[in-house]
Design a protein around this nucleic acid. Sequence first.
DNA 1: CGCTTAGTTGACTCTTCTCAAAAGCAGTGG
DNA 2: CCACTGCTTTTGAGAAGAGTCAACTAAGCG
Lengths: 257, 257
Amino acid sequence: VDLGGGMMRRNPYIRKLEQFRELSEADKQLLEDAVVQIVDVGSREDIVVQGSKPEHVHLLIEGWAARYKIVGDGDRNIMAYLIPGDLCDVHIALLDWMDHSIAALTACKVGLIPLASMERVLSESRSLSRALTRSMLVDEAILREWLVSFGARSAEMRTAHFLCEMLLRFKAIGRADGDSFDMPLTQLELGDTMGLSTVHMNRTLKKLRSKGFIEVQDKRVTICDTEALMEFCNFDPLYLHQTQRDASCPRQPSPRS
Amino acid sequence: VDLGGGMMRRNPYIRKLEQFRELSEADKQLLEDAVVQIVDVGSREDIVVQGSKPEHVHLLIEGWAARYKIVGDGDRNIMAYLIPGDLCDVHIALLDWMDHSIAALTACKVGLIPLASMERVLSESRSLSRALTRSMLVDEAILREWLVSFGARSAEMRTAHFLCEMLLRFKAIGRADGDSFDMPLTQLELGDTMGLSTVHMNRTLKKLRSKGFIEVQDKRVTICDTEALMEFCNFDPLYLHQTQRDASCPRQPSPRS
DNA sequence: CGCTTAGTTGACTCTTCTCAAAAGCAGTGG
DNA sequence: CCACTGCTTTTGAGAAGAGTCAACTAAGCG
């Protein structure tokens, strides 16, 4: 299946994997061939639901999706975002059920890779297997950093930190325009992500805006002074494990004195 | 290296891996042989430090350890606990640096597995490789559940949830005595875990005690009414992906009506 | 044009933090 | 044996952060 744009190497997924190591043409072809179908998923539709055992690995090609859980009396919790190029649950075959759901937050294009094909890719190409495992490790690192955000950062810093992270992630797949990127989320969804009520999410964004850190227009976020914002929220990009090639963060935050 | 207790299959690590699938004698031997040395790490000492690239994969054989980060002006954040049988960072070779540190919270015994040996184990035994990857997936699921705890649960529920989780994890490695287990943590450390100040951590524990959910004595936690406590904090053990064999949780929480 | 959803703001309540101090406990040296 | 010290636990009181309820505005859509 052709993943759009014709050239596989222009695909955000390949671009993401190549952050780490060059992939041979054969590898790229192998991965492309594994995608048997591309489906359109409507905004707010579930891609994978909690408790099920998916038959495919999903490759997000276009749009925003999120991992979430519903807890207690209907409180939704977003635990991760998937953006174009993110392959979710490469190793899902090893678990018996999904412990959370994945939903499209916007209209999405999703590539389907049968479990058996995924298995074949992993066993046939050592470098693809490494690249994929590495990408899973980075997802885990992001989860840990989010945990730090919740444990040690205020609502304002937490939100700022999230925006810095998304900026770097979008830059890495070539979908950021300077220091701005599309973020088609409602404040309710953002609140479910940051663990804040809608009201407080709104006030928090307002503060970030009034401090001149960010601008928001038409679902597009612009970070006015990246360096200042990173300083403000103690953002240290190391956890994203991006390599020099795409590192666009100005400098390492200075060690604590 | 003999991992203590003589019989490898009595080792908590093997026990943990076998939650998922039976391992052959050869597999067990392979894993045991990969451990080239067992070192003692003193309480509060670092096992792996942020920014470094470890030369070994670490197998925690005895004691409590924690993944943590220091953020901003010295605020420590604990993002995960390692208990006997936990193998940390199987795939660390794929990343260029640790994005967090791991410290012993008590005196620990740690098995060292050279990266090359780990690599060999992974390539030689398909079932070990699967078991290890699965265990990594569960670690990730735990991270996600912690995130839910922070986003959607009060300090009291969050703490209760944590205790339920640790009880099940200790049961799975045969280190729980009925519904109680050793938890040699200070309230400062617990607070760093739950994202609470020491003062509030103390008050939170007091509430859980006064409600009759738990008892604490000599660094030993007893959960008085497991079912009630799980109900109280919306604990759903699915995310631990434990199998029937060791599942000791009374029942599935009823689906939301 | 009316409907629905998303964003904004105010007022009040509740949770959690911070500062401060006391009490319990263990180790240390005289 | 005892005073001293440092760490942990506990409690009190006031301050700050975040949630809730409610109303109002703005934007998209048939």
